[in-house]
Protein backbone atom coordinates (compact mmCIF):
# COMPACT_ATOMS: atom_id res chain seq x y z
CA UNK A 1 0.00 0.00 0.00
CA UNK A 2 2.65 2.48 1.10
CA UNK A 3 6.42 2.28 0.64
CA UNK A 4 8.88 4.90 1.80
CA UNK A 5 12.59 4.45 1.26
CA UNK A 6 15.35 6.69 2.61
CA UNK A 7 13.21 9.80 2.77
CA UNK A 8 14.87 13.14 3.52
CA UNK A 9 13.24 16.48 4.08
CA UNK A 10 14.65 19.79 5.27
CA UNK A 11 13.19 23.25 5.60
CA UNK A 12 14.99 26.46 4.86
CA UNK A 13 15.00 28.80 7.82
CA UNK A 14 16.59 31.97 6.56
CA UNK A 15 20.23 31.15 5.84
CA UNK A 16 20.37 27.85 7.65
CA UNK A 17 18.32 24.79 6.81
CA UNK A 18 16.56 22.53 9.26
CA UNK A 19 16.94 18.83 8.52
CA UNK A 20 13.60 17.44 9.68
CA UNK A 21 13.48 13.93 8.26
CA UNK A 22 16.75 12.05 8.02
CA UNK A 23 16.26 8.88 6.05
CA UNK A 24 12.88 7.37 6.83
CA UNK A 25 12.03 3.82 5.76
CA UNK A 26 8.43 2.79 6.22
CA UNK A 27 6.25 0.11 4.68
CA UNK A 28 2.57 -0.06 5.43
CA UNK A 29 0.35 -2.84 4.12
CA UNK A 30 -3.29 -2.73 3.32
CA UNK A 31 -5.58 -2.95 6.35
CA UNK A 32 -3.01 -1.74 8.87
CA UNK A 33 -3.69 0.80 11.60
CA UNK A 34 -0.47 2.61 12.38
CA UNK A 35 0.25 5.22 15.05
CA UNK A 36 3.11 7.59 14.33
CA UNK A 37 4.42 8.78 17.70
CA UNK A 38 6.88 11.41 18.66
CA UNK A 39 7.29 14.59 20.60
CA UNK A 40 6.84 17.91 18.87
CA UNK A 41 9.69 18.62 16.49
CA UNK A 42 10.27 14.92 15.88
CA UNK A 43 9.12 15.30 12.28
CA UNK A 44 5.92 13.25 12.58
CA UNK A 45 3.65 15.91 11.08
CA UNK A 46 6.10 16.53 8.25
CA UNK A 47 6.10 12.82 7.49
CA UNK A 48 2.30 12.77 7.43
CA UNK A 49 2.19 15.79 5.13
CA UNK A 50 4.55 14.10 2.70
CA UNK A 51 2.53 10.90 2.82
CA UNK A 52 -0.58 13.04 2.26
CA UNK A 53 1.00 14.74 -0.79
CA UNK A 54 0.53 18.04 0.98
CA UNK A 55 4.27 18.54 1.02
CA UNK A 56 7.14 17.43 -1.20
CA UNK A 57 10.09 15.25 -0.33
CA UNK A 58 13.67 16.31 -0.96
CA UNK A 59 15.14 12.91 -1.69
CA UNK A 60 14.20 9.27 -1.35
CA UNK A 61 11.31 7.26 -2.74
CA UNK A 62 7.63 7.28 -1.94
CA UNK A 63 5.25 4.86 -3.59
CA UNK A 64 1.53 4.97 -2.89
CA UNK A 65 -0.59 2.04 -4.07
CA UNK A 66 2.07 1.20 -6.65
CA UNK A 67 2.39 4.73 -7.98
CA UNK A 68 5.55 6.70 -7.41
CA UNK A 69 4.82 10.11 -5.95
CA UNK A 70 7.46 12.37 -7.44
CA UNK A 71 7.59 15.76 -9.13
CA UNK A 72 3.82 15.98 -9.44
CA UNK A 73 2.11 18.98 -10.95
CA UNK A 74 -0.35 20.72 -8.68
CA UNK A 75 -3.17 19.30 -10.73
CA UNK A 76 -1.91 15.73 -10.54
CA UNK A 77 -1.24 16.08 -6.81
CA UNK A 78 -4.80 17.32 -6.29
CA UNK A 79 -6.10 14.36 -8.27
CA UNK A 80 -4.14 11.83 -6.20
CA UNK A 81 -5.17 13.46 -2.93
CA UNK A 82 -8.76 13.26 -4.04
CA UNK A 83 -8.55 9.67 -5.22
CA UNK A 84 -6.21 8.00 -2.71
CA UNK A 85 -6.30 9.99 0.50
CA UNK A 86 -8.73 11.06 3.19
CA UNK A 87 -7.64 13.64 5.75
CA UNK A 88 -8.71 14.13 9.33
CA UNK A 89 -7.19 17.14 11.08
CA UNK A 90 -6.77 18.15 14.70
CA UNK A 91 -8.68 21.39 14.08
CA UNK A 92 -11.34 19.61 11.96
CA UNK A 93 -10.88 22.07 9.06
CA UNK A 94 -14.51 22.13 8.06
CA UNK A 95 -15.62 24.98 5.82
CA UNK A 96 -17.64 27.06 8.21
CA UNK A 97 -20.19 28.45 5.76
CA UNK A 98 -21.15 25.01 4.50
CA UNK A 99 -23.43 22.69 6.45
CA UNK A 100 -22.43 19.18 7.47
CA UNK A 101 -23.81 17.55 4.34
CA UNK A 102 -22.16 20.07 2.03
CA UNK A 103 -18.83 19.65 3.78
CA UNK A 104 -18.99 15.89 3.33
CA UNK A 105 -20.03 16.29 -0.31
CA UNK A 106 -17.14 18.63 -1.20
CA UNK A 107 -14.52 15.98 -2.17
CA UNK A 108 -17.20 14.34 -4.31
CA UNK A 109 -17.69 17.65 -6.10
CA UNK A 110 -14.01 17.60 -7.00
CA UNK A 111 -14.43 14.03 -8.21
CA UNK A 112 -16.92 15.37 -10.71
CA UNK A 113 -19.95 13.52 -9.43
CA UNK A 114 -23.45 14.80 -10.17
CA UNK A 115 -25.18 16.80 -7.49
CA UNK A 116 -27.76 14.18 -6.69
CA UNK A 117 -25.18 11.44 -6.48
CA UNK A 118 -23.00 13.64 -4.27
CA UNK A 119 -25.79 14.26 -1.83
CA UNK A 120 -26.79 10.62 -1.67
CA UNK A 121 -23.24 9.51 -1.03
CA UNK A 122 -22.60 12.28 1.49
CA UNK A 123 -25.78 11.38 3.30
CA UNK A 124 -24.74 7.73 3.42
CA UNK A 125 -21.42 8.59 5.04
CA UNK A 126 -22.97 11.10 7.40
CA UNK A 127 -25.34 8.37 8.46
CA UNK A 128 -22.39 6.08 8.99
CA UNK A 129 -20.87 8.47 11.53
CA UNK A 130 -24.29 8.78 13.14
CA UNK A 131 -24.98 12.40 12.20
CA UNK A 132 -27.72 11.99 9.60
CA UNK A 133 -30.00 14.16 11.72
CA UNK A 134 -27.43 16.96 11.77
CA UNK A 135 -26.90 17.19 8.04
CA UNK A 136 -28.21 20.73 7.68
CA UNK A 137 -26.31 22.15 10.66
CA UNK A 138 -23.37 24.46 10.22
CA UNK A 139 -20.06 23.47 11.85
CA UNK A 140 -20.41 26.09 14.61
CA UNK A 141 -23.67 24.43 15.67
CA UNK A 142 -21.87 21.13 16.29
CA UNK A 143 -19.83 19.89 19.25
CA UNK A 144 -16.13 19.07 18.85
CA UNK A 145 -16.82 15.35 18.60
CA UNK A 146 -19.56 15.91 16.06
CA UNK A 147 -17.28 18.15 14.00
CA UNK A 148 -14.59 15.49 13.97
CA UNK A 149 -17.11 12.89 12.92
CA UNK A 150 -18.25 15.13 10.06
CA UNK A 151 -14.58 15.48 9.10
CA UNK A 152 -14.21 11.69 9.17
CA UNK A 153 -17.32 11.31 7.05
CA UNK A 154 -15.82 13.82 4.62
CA UNK A 155 -12.52 11.90 4.55
CA UNK A 156 -14.42 8.68 3.85
CA UNK A 157 -16.78 10.12 1.27
CA UNK A 158 -14.26 9.92 -1.56
CA UNK A 159 -13.59 6.30 -0.57
CA UNK A 160 -9.84 6.75 -0.21
CA UNK A 161 -7.35 3.91 0.00
CA UNK A 162 -5.60 5.53 2.94
CA UNK A 163 -6.99 7.53 5.83
CA UNK A 164 -4.57 10.06 7.35
CA UNK A 165 -5.36 11.52 10.76
CA UNK A 166 -3.23 14.29 12.23
CA UNK A 167 -3.81 14.36 16.01
CA UNK A 168 -7.50 13.56 15.43
CA UNK A 169 -8.20 13.63 19.18
CA UNK A 170 -5.93 16.55 20.02
CA UNK A 171 -8.79 19.00 20.49
CA UNK A 172 -11.20 16.62 22.16
CA UNK A 173 -11.80 15.46 25.76
CA UNK A 174 -10.95 11.86 26.61
CA UNK A 175 -14.50 10.49 26.40
CA UNK A 176 -15.00 11.99 22.95
CA UNK A 177 -11.49 10.90 21.99
CA UNK A 178 -12.35 7.31 22.76
CA UNK A 179 -15.56 7.60 20.81
CA UNK A 180 -13.61 8.80 17.74
CA UNK A 181 -10.93 6.14 18.18
CA UNK A 182 -13.56 3.45 18.50
CA UNK A 183 -15.03 4.60 15.24
CA UNK A 184 -11.62 4.56 13.55
CA UNK A 185 -11.11 0.99 14.83
CA UNK A 186 -14.40 -0.02 13.25
CA UNK A 187 -13.33 1.48 9.96
CA UNK A 188 -10.07 -0.43 10.19
CA UNK A 189 -12.02 -3.61 10.86
CA UNK A 190 -13.84 -2.99 7.59
CA UNK A 191 -10.44 -3.02 5.86
CA UNK A 192 -9.53 0.67 5.70
CA UNK A 193 -5.81 1.45 6.05
CA UNK A 194 -5.33 4.16 8.68
CA UNK A 195 -2.33 6.28 9.70
CA UNK A 196 -2.65 8.31 12.90
CA UNK A 197 -0.16 10.91 14.07
CA UNK A 198 -0.38 11.39 17.82
CA UNK A 199 1.70 12.20 20.86
CA UNK A 200 -0.72 10.55 23.27
CA UNK A 201 0.41 7.14 24.50
CA UNK A 202 -3.10 5.75 25.15
CA UNK A 203 -4.24 6.71 21.64
CA UNK A 204 -1.28 4.92 20.08
CA UNK A 205 -2.10 1.80 22.06
CA UNK A 206 -5.45 1.64 20.32
CA UNK A 207 -3.66 1.06 16.99
CA UNK A 208 -2.10 -2.15 15.72
CA UNK A 209 1.39 -0.81 15.13
CA UNK A 210 3.44 2.01 16.64
CA UNK A 211 6.17 3.88 14.77
CA UNK A 212 8.24 6.12 17.04
CA UNK A 213 10.04 9.11 15.58
CA UNK A 214 12.76 11.13 17.26
CA UNK A 215 14.82 13.88 15.67
CA UNK A 216 13.83 12.82 12.18
CA UNK A 217 14.65 9.13 12.39
CA UNK A 218 12.53 6.10 13.27
CA UNK A 219 13.59 4.89 16.74
CA UNK A 220 11.15 2.04 17.03
CA UNK A 221 8.65 0.26 14.76
CA UNK A 222 6.66 -2.47 16.45
CA UNK A 223 3.38 -4.31 16.08
CA UNK A 224 1.31 -4.32 19.27
CA UNK A 225 -1.77 -5.97 20.58
CA UNK A 226 -4.55 -3.52 19.91
CA UNK A 227 -6.38 -2.00 22.85
CA UNK A 228 -9.95 -2.60 21.65
CA UNK A 229 -12.61 -0.14 22.61
CA UNK A 230 -16.09 -1.39 22.98
Amino acid sequence: MLKINNLHKSYKMGDSSLHVLKGINLHVDKGEMVAIMGSSGSGKSTLLNIIGILDELDSGEYTLDGIEIKDLTEKKAAQYRNKFLGFVFQSFNLINFKNALENVALPLYYQGLKRKERQEKAMFHLNKVGLADWSTHLPNELSGGQKQRVAIARALAAEPKLLLADEPTGALDSATSHEIMQFLQQLNDEGKTILIVTHEEDISLMCKRIVRLKDGVIMEDKKIKQNRLT
Partner: peptide, 12 residues
Protein backbone atom coordinates in the same frame (compact mmCIF):
# COMPACT_ATOMS: atom_id res chain seq x y z
CA UNK B 1 -6.06 24.91 1.83
CA UNK B 2 -8.96 22.67 2.86
CA UNK B 3 -10.28 22.56 -0.67
CA UNK B 4 -6.86 21.67 -2.01
CA UNK B 5 -6.41 18.92 0.56
CA UNK B 6 -9.74 17.50 -0.55
CA UNK B 7 -8.51 17.42 -4.12
CA UNK B 8 -9.46 20.77 -5.64
CA UNK B 9 -7.34 21.37 -8.76
CA UNK B 10 -5.61 24.80 -8.85
CA UNK B 11 -7.78 25.97 -11.74
CA UNK B 12 -10.98 25.49 -9.78
Amino acid sequence: GIRKALGAPPNS
